[in-house]
Design a protein around this nucleic acid. Structure first.
Lengths: 209, 209
DNA sequence: CAGCCTATTGACTCTCGGGTCAAAGTTTGC
DNA sequence: GCAAACTTTGACCCGAGAGTCAATAGGCTG
């Protein structure tokens, strides 16, 4: 009776704004941790500790670990996907260049800013059902961006592939693994590694002969 | 004083043989489960239940979960790697055909016989240190097989790649994901999917122009 | 059949982590 | 400056799962 229900009863004005900021803090911290270690390996105490707060506090904002995970995935995903989509809509030039830019951006974000965020995509099965669905959704949107450019290039004859979906799968898989093997490199070595990765993946769409 | 130490004091003769068989049963069941769900999501009670046995029994043969996992990985890995290595040593023909055969075999084993075994490779970080090292070792051996054929083709000019290691990474990543997206298909659709995957990956080594 | 290994059980401990909640602390608005 | 709303705490409950162990069952072997 004394407690603020987690969901409804929105407070108004400045208070609400503060609440919003807190929620964002929690979400980005959670996204960070889940990205680094996956779902199981992150306890709510871990999240709370990194925020200099107690577990109980988290339950004031979220009804449970699942919901926190879902929200964190959506926050992280909205940003990331948004940047990809914006890039796809912005970059000029032939499909060749645009695809390469997308690959670079995708991997750069993954490796740099969300060090292990792509791990989200790797083993959706270790996540509870609800977060898993969000992850799949996220991936679908990313694929969609790539599929668009890919099909453009196919239409113009600039690209040739064995199969669109298979090509997307391969690209995705390779990009998703990238943080694991060039996450530790120094920045210039990393740049080179990412360039090489992009070049390698571009071979997947190279028109034959 | 009344208990048989887990490690030393090898019994002899028929008894020992029986013990060996039991150990094998446990290992293959454990490999199966770990392959399906990963380390965290499998409890020793799960393993015991599938064996119609009690957890305590497992501790009669293995000192702990980690050790069981390590042994299971090694069993599964020895078989798998062995088949790859044998295939690489056996198959005749140009590097092109040999590499394709390796890819097909690798993926076929992963998708068919150890449905999610490749998941072992996916997120080594969710495993405790010791099993993780074994998984990396396993992967190193697999890579070694592929690297061999790849370098052959490069030497003969039949292949061209942007970078050997990057190419291996991409191949590995794509093959590792395969069970997740064509594991559920019917057998002939699956065959087609695997062929397409192999063809797609072969583009990675295609000599340019 | 007696005695000695071998194998298995089931009940137990202990820790970790998700989730709860009353009480206390803090902010806001009047 | 004070009451009401908001926020945080810390102690607590509970179940799950790793690991332990004395007791017991089940052979072999002399």
């Amino acid at each position: 009776m004394s407690r603020q229900p987690v969901e409804d009863a929105a407070p108004v004005g400045r208070v609400q704004r503060k609440r919003g900021r807190r929620v964002q803090e929690i979400l980005s911290t959670a996204a960070e941790l889940f990205g680094e270690r996956g779902y199981d390996a992150v306890s709510l105490d871990d999240v709370a500790e990194r925020l200099d707060v107690t577990k109980g506090s988290l339950y004031y904002y979220f009804p449970g670990k699942d919901e926190l995970a879902v929200a964190a995935i959506e926050t992280l995903g909205a940003d990331w996907t948004g940047r990809l989509e914006r890039l796809a809509a912005t970059v000029e030039g032939p499909p060749h260049e645009r695809l390469r830019a997308l690959i670079r951006e995708h991997v750069a974000i993954a490796v740099g800013e969300y060090p292990a965020a792509l791990r989200l995509f790797l083993v959706p099965s270790t996540w509870p059902d609800d977060p898993r669905e969000r992850i799949k959704e996220l991936r679908r949107r990313h694929d969609q961006v790539f599929r668009g450019v890919l099909e453009e290039g196919l239409a113009s004859g600039e690209f040739a592939v064995t199969g669109v979906e298979t090509t997307l799968q391969c690209m995705h898989a390779a990009m998703a693994q990238a943080p694991l093997w060039c996450g530790g490199l120094e920045s210039d070595a990393q740049e080179r590694a990412l360039d090489e990765l992009a070049d390698t993946l571009m071979k997947l769409v190279a028109a034959a002969q």
